[in-house]
Each structure stands twice: as C-alpha cells, then as structure tokens.
Design a protein around this nucleic acid. Structure first.
Lengths: 218, 218
DNA sequence: ATCCAAATAGACAGACCTGTATGTATTTGC
DNA sequence: GCAAATACATACAGGTCTGTCTATTTGGAT
C-alpha cells in the first residue's frame, strides 16, 4: 500500500497507470474518457480523480483543458497514422493492395469493444467552425488534411483517369466505414468497403485499351 | 414595437420566429443551436433567450432538456427522410437512378453555409453507448436503422449478387460524403460518390452473362 | 543527511448548468 | 367584455464546471 490506494487505477490495456509518469497518466486517462464519452461531458475533476493526480500537477502539465484536448487529438493522430503506416508498408504489397490495406487496418479497431467511431469526427461534432478553440480545431483539420494527403500518396502510383476523385471516393469509403461500424457494430463493413475500393480503382485504371465501355445502363 | 423587442429574433430561413407558436419557436431555435454548435455546449438559458420565451413556458412544452434533444433529433429525422423521399420518388427514374438520387439530395445541404455534417453522427458523438439518455440514444439508433431500411428498399428492385453488401457500401458512400463535405466543404464529393455508387451497383448487377471476369488484377 | 523540485491534498472563487418558484401580463374562447 | 389558459419576467436553489491558491509530503541527487 505504499502508493496510497492508487493500485486500483488500471488503463484500457490492463497496464498499471501508476507505473507511468503523471503526464502520461493524465493523457491516457483523458484519452480514454474523452473517446468513450465525449469531450464536453468529461470534466477536469473526473480526469484528475481517475488518473490519481493532484489538480496542481494537472495544471502544471496542461495549462488548460483546451490544451489537454488538443494534446489528446494529436496523440490519437499519431497512433492512428502509425497504424495506417504499419498496414500499408507491409512487404510484398502491390500499389493497389497498399490502398486496400487501409481497410484491413480498420478490422481490429472495429472488433474492439471500446470502439466508438472516428475520434476526429467526434471532435468535429463538438468543436465545429463556430467553436472558440483554435488549437483544437487546427488539430482536427490537420488530421483530415493529413489523411487526405496519405491516401493521395497511396493512390499516386496508380495510373488513374481522375486521381483526385479516386482519393475522395476512397476517403468516403474509409470514413463511411467508421460511421457504419459505430452505429451497427458489424465488422463486415471492412470487407465490403475494401472490395468496393478495389472495384472503383480497377474501374478507374487507364490500363484497359478501351477508354469508355460503361456509359448508359441505368 | 408591440411585441417588446422580439422582432429581432429571426430564424435560419429568414422567417420571423415570433410569428410561430412558442413550442415551434423553441424547437427551431434549439435545432439551429444544437446543430451549429453542439448539444452539450448549448444551455437551456440560451435557447430560452434566443427563442424569446419564458422559462416556465419552455418547461411546460419540454419537461427536460433530454426531452428537447430527442424532439430535435426526431424533427431532423422527419425533414431528412422527407427530403430523401422527394429526391428518390421523382417521376421517370429507373430503379438504379433512384438509388443514385440520394446523392443528388446531398448537394443542396452541402452548399448551404449552415451545413455542419450529419446531425445523427454528431448526436452519436455526444450520446454514445455509455450515455444515460435512453430517449436520445433510441432516436439516433432509429435514424440509422431507418436509413439502412430506406436504402435497402431502394436497392431491393435491383438484381444484385449480394444486396445486403451493396446496401452497406452505399450507406458508407452516403455517410462518408457527409464527413468529407463537413471537413473539406467541397461539394464535388456528391458527384464523385454518386458515380462511385453507380460503378459499384453496375458491377454487382447479375445481368451480365459471365458471372466473374474481374478476379486478379491488383 | 539535506536540499529541492515535483507531487499531493483540499479548499475556494466565479461562472455556468438544469430545473423550480412566484407573481404579472397577455392572449383566447365564449 | 370577461374568465381561464397561456406566456411573460425574474429570482433562486443546488449542483458542476474550470482554474487558482495554500500548505504539506514525497523522492531523488548530492
């Protein structure tokens, strides 16, 4: 009992929070709470209580709640892009398969009981254009811009007729999968949208000799 | 000036709010504020002030804030499905075109400066599984279930190999378009995703004689 | 051992929140 | 015109929010 009843605080992955430095403890606790519930509905007091930290310690590491929120979103951005990079940079993948790999990356998060949708869509829901939190808004905008750039870089090697259009279609399938998975909890959306992306990309490939053979069917 | 300075309150479409009954004034004001900002960040006092209504009048029509939130989401559900019905039930549309029409319906909302994304995705961001507002959560769930059923009914006439998979793909493109439009404000996503939906549906149609001719390209 | 930075505990201010209470004015139905 | 329902204005209670303040305790380096 040398740490005064702090042993009971355990983070999501089962690692003891009290083994971490206070700043990491605060960030992990806040990340979990903000994502599970929402940002506005989780107060500083609760984060302080659940991370087993004194209030002054909190405000030493994070000058304000807005500061913590922006840090939380940057933390989510980093881990998310790391996961995407890991999935798409596996050896032996063709350029097309690399694009499709971003959907495979979704499977594990979707199966986790703690999945609550895209943290940045959730963030945008609470900190839209009229909010008064420039740091938070900039962090969210940076994620979407970064994701767009990432998908664009994956698509760039493919000889497509309209690359930019393919990018936003793939982005739609990607973000759409998050929304569907959040509301239905059915991981089948991963395979469905990966196949949809394949069909779209193969359709847009300009390798086939005939430029247009699907014009009027509907 | 017979209405004591209430003339200045004007709703989104420019119609004078004070011409409406108090209940409608409250609902329209709340709908605007909840959607523009977020639900948790807008207090009862502000809704009361901006709708030019007394507090007791508010609590007579809506027993609690949760009640107002659920009513707001039901109101959004109704108007949204009405718009979708109008778009898809236009005369002279083929079954395939009826599916694609749901994307055309997005164009006008996306161009509106007041567009802030899907109200139900925003709602889910603030009232997830761990929230304690059964009415609100049920209303959100009902929307997603309703949208799924609506798209399924549009797809049902099409002879598709895997109809249920097509439904969630179309839903992904639809909800994904909302997310993309919310973060980039580029209405080009409408045409891109409508065409994506067409490609996907035409690919899945079982009218072509050969069952499989696109297997290994990537 | 001692010093010092860091962390802890807990009270507190001021603002905001939801919901209630009280009393007055206005509209509406007849 | 009059009575009853409705809406108005405003104060207030009890709780929660962010952020500040004071004072004490811990832990590691010298």
């Amino acid at each position: 009992m040398e740490t005064r009843g702090m042993l009971e605080f355990v983070d999501v992955e089962g690692q003891p929070l009290n083994a971490l430095a206070p700043r990491e403890r605060i960030l992990k606790t806040a990340s979990d709470l903000f994502y599970r519930f929402s940002i506005h509905s989780v107060g500083i007091d609760r984060i302080i209580a659940e991370s087993g930290v004194a209030k002054m310690t909190f405000y030493k590491h994070f000058p304000s709640k807005a500061d913590l929120i922006a840090t939380y979103l940057r933390y989510k951005t980093d881990t998310w892009f790391q996961m995407l990079a890991t999935s798409t940079e596996r050896a032996g993948l063709s350029p097309l398969e690399r694009v499709l790999a971003i959907f495979d990356a979704l499977e594990e998060p979707f199966r986790a009981p703690s999945f609550r949708g895209c943290p940045f869509v959730k963030g945008l829901a609470e900190f839209g254009p009229e909010a008064n939190s420039p740091d938070v808004q900039a962090t969210i905008a940076a994620y979407f811009k970064g994701l767009h750039g990432f998908v664009a870089s994956l698509i760039e090697p493919l000889p497509l007729s309209k690359p930019e259009r393919a990018v936003i279609q793939i982005l739609s399938l990607f973000q759409g999968a998050m929304v569907i998975a959040q509301s239905t909890r059915d991981p089948a959306i991963v395979e469905a949208n990966r196949d949809a992306a394949r069909v779209l990309l193969e359709d847009a490939l300009i390798t086939s000799p005939e430029p247009e053979f699907r014009s009027a069917v509907g």
